[in-house]
Amino acid sequence: MGAPVAFFEVSSPDHERAQQFYAELFGWKVAADPAMGGYGLVDTAAGEGAIGGGIGPVEESDSPGVRIYVRVDDLEQSLRRAEELGGTALVPPTDLPAGWGRFALFADPDGNTVGLWG
């Protein structure tokens, strides 16, 4: 039995900008909590059983980071939109072996590498 991804977290030195970036790119709802230093819980609006996450400031002992793949309907459009919002394309849409779909990679404005999978 595998261990499915159950949560994701993005940390940023400018967490408010990161929250806005991901909300605009994927249509996510981010509920920032001032009592938690602005950490925002994410609702991906993908329905029951969807993976949720959080976006917040970089912890003192950590560095900015995100290591997730996000499933999208259109890799090319999502990669273009990421660039429009200040991201950088790293790997163009590329076929995965054995019919596993396609992927692309971009760096968000903080340099975090994010995968798109379609």
Rank of each mutant, 00 (worst) to 15 (best):
L90T: 01
G27M: 06
A98H: 00
R17M: 06
P92M: 03
R80W: 08
A46W: 08
S12P: 02
R102A: 09
V66N: 12
P13Y: 00
I55M: 13
G86Q: 03
G56E: 10
L41A: 09
E60Y: 03
F8Y: 07
G86V: 08
D43E: 08
R102G: 06
V58M: 12
D74P: 10
G38R: 11
A45E: 13
D43C: 12
R71N: 13
G99Y: 02
M36Q: 13
G56F: 12
A23S: 15
I51K: 07
P64G: 13
W100M: 05
R80C: 06
A45Q: 15
T94R: 00
G53R: 07
P92Y: 00
V58E: 12
G27Y: 07
P34C: 06
G101K: 04
E83A: 09
D74N: 15
E24M: 01
P57R: 10
A46L: 10
G27A: 03
S78T: 12
E24H: 02
S78W: 01
G37T: 06
S78V: 06
A98F: 02
E76A: 12
E24F: 00
R17C: 02
K29C: 07
G52Y: 14
G47M: 13
G49C: 11
G54N: 09
E9R: 09
G40H: 10
L85Q: 04
R81V: 01
D62I: 05
S63H: 12
G40R: 10
G53N: 10
E16F: 04
L96G: 00
G53E: 08
E83G: 04
I68M: 10
G38L: 08
I55E: 11
R67V: 14
W28Y: 11
A18C: 05
L85A: 04
A50H: 13
E9M: 05
G99S: 07
R67C: 15
G87D: 01
T44D: 11
G101A: 05
